[in-house]
Nucleic acid binder design. Structure first.
Lengths: 310, 310
DNA sequence: CGTGGACTGTAGCAAAACTTAATCCCGCGT
DNA sequence: ACGCGGGATTAAGTTTTGCTACAGTCCACG
């Protein structure tokens, strides 16, 4: 046996307005339509729900039971409606975000605090991984969106990924405070042919940046140390073991005893992007996060505050 | 905005079985039907509920919200279903019964206790009134059914009333224990021509019974007292003020100092009936009460116990 | 007794829902 | 690289459902 909600609601209307005709008027139906639907409801239930008489109708026990439960169901539907409204307005929902470590250590915190204050109802989770891991996580749908990067010689080209650029992250040179170039704002790559280089181990992408940059300038870099993170690299630079190419974003915390120099466009800049599965239309919270990330990228990491909720 | 429950349930099925195709199979639909309905649901909500991918679908936040509430609604519908089942089985519901006083004082208590023990979930209310009052109560639908009576010379003939006979209630003669006839089992009406009669005031129907009975035997009764109830009448009979015609049912409590005699078919018998509005199909509890009243009538007021629920 | 209000039955039509069949998309294995 | 297969989708056609129009029917009430 099946209890049709539509007909039950109709019954509730009949109960409320006292007669089929009155209910029909309220709902812009003909009395005939109401009568037919109520009849079908009774057939489905195997019970009369209305006692008919010349001046209208009365509810039977069964009718009362139906009307009561309809009221409860209406309340529940209203609650659902409200919840959906919250989701639409990004005041509720979930977002699983992926990031690579240097972004997570630099700009992302601003985005996270900004997002959390504007969308307090949203449960936000962040995972950090390297590029390949992020792609895998996107692929397996363990995260909804990810902050990624690429260089011009190996453009990100994943099928089924929708990508939007956030900012360019230029490569900079880090030297010891005692280095001969420490006083300059910038330097040409050609002047660095005799330097010894600190780079990163495990085929870290910055190693390729170094290689390409130097080769473009006509020499092979001499590597003196392979660090496992940028803090270690900075420490080695400070110790005078060599100089290092480092993406700007990895320099959010700069030691007192090193100096950072620009390279005047000679060194490649990496592109930082926000990506999500192309088949998944962005959810309201996804859109909200996109907006905030773009703002953070634009403002380069000044605190974006808790201003104007969307 | 409207949240269609049918489509929402479909979404719940899709969530449960992991893909539209699987859900379609379970529900004996084609995948196409499911896809179309989900699409309409999303259009109605203005939100995606599913994230599609090659191996099936995942719920979005909105989808999760819908599915959650659908589960709650299903529970509620199940509760309603159960309640309706109870109503069908007369384990729940209400019944408003009308009765005339002498039935209420005689057989009805057996029916009430029998009914209450077999249908403990049913809320039973009983109102007592005289015949015209009962008809009025039926008419205004303040009661669902009523126990009524009539005599052959004024048959109950109410339009829109469905009537079923319960039992015949013969008229008997009550005399004082000291009366000359006190030792007999029965007596002919002709032998009572010289008696003085106790009857009832206010045009009580038994007054007409007396009149007709005596007239049929060829004399006019001499009335010595008009009582206001049968207890008073019995008291007057006991006091030797006269004899009285009394319906059998009004003799459930007989004084020690009076005797009851049969009248061998010469006195009219009243018909006792159960009536309900003809337009109202009998409810399950109504049917149950009818059955019990018929049983009580058949067994003449022996305790019918709490035997076999229907 | 007739009149008005309320419900009901029939026929027809339009919208909704489902099916059929063709197509697309994507991941996977050879 | 290519085809295969599961799954979703689309277009078009068919069935089902729900509603209207309209003509009763019943009953309370004047």
């Amino acid at each position: 046996m099946h209890v049709d909600l539509g007909r039950s609601r109709l019954l509730a209307a009949v109960a409320r307005y006292g007669s089929m005709t009155a209910a029909a008027e309220q709902l812009a139906y003909t009395p005939s339509a109401v009568s037919q639907q109520i009849r079908k409801l009774e057939a489905e239930l195997g019970l009369q729900v209305l006692a008919r008489h010349a001046k209208g109708v009365d509810l039977t026990d069964a009718g009362r039971a139906v009307v009561e439960h309809v009221a409860g169901i209406e309340r529940r539907l209203a609650a659902l409606h409200e919840q959906l409204e919250d989701i639409r307005g990004a005041r509720a929902g979930t977002l699983r975000l992926g990031t690579f470590p240097t972004f997570g250590a630099s700009l992302l915190p601003f985005a996270i605090t900004g997002f959390a204050s504007r969308h307090p109802g949203v449960s936000l989770s962040v995972r950090s991984a390297r590029l390949s891991g992020l792609l895998e996580l996107l692929h397996t749908r363990e995260i909804d969106m990810a902050v990624l990067w690429d260089y011009e010689w190996s453009r990100l080209d994943e099928a089924g990924l929708s990508v939007r650029e956030l900012l360019a992250d230029p490569t900079r040179l880090v030297v010891s405070a005692a280095h001969r170039l420490a006083g300059q704002d910038s330097v040409g790559v050609g002047e660095l042919a005799r330097e010894r280089w600190i780079t990163r181990a495990d085929h870290h992408p910055v190693a390729e940046v170094l290689l390409r940059t130097c080769q473009a300038a006509g020499y092979e870099p001499v590597v003196s140390f392979e660090a496992h993170d940028y803090q270690e690299a900075q420490a080695m630079v400070a110790a005078g073991l060599g100089v290092a190419l480092v993406p700007q974003l990895a320099l959010s915390g700069v030691r007192e005893d090193v100096r950072v120099l620009g390279l005047g466009g000679e060194a490649p800049s990496r592109r930082i992007m926000l990506a999500h599965s192309a088949d998944r239309a962005p959810s309201p919270v996804g859109t909200a996060m996109t907006k905030i990330l773009r703002q953070v990228a634009r403002e380069g990491g000044r605190d974006i505050g808790t201003a104007a909720a969307p």
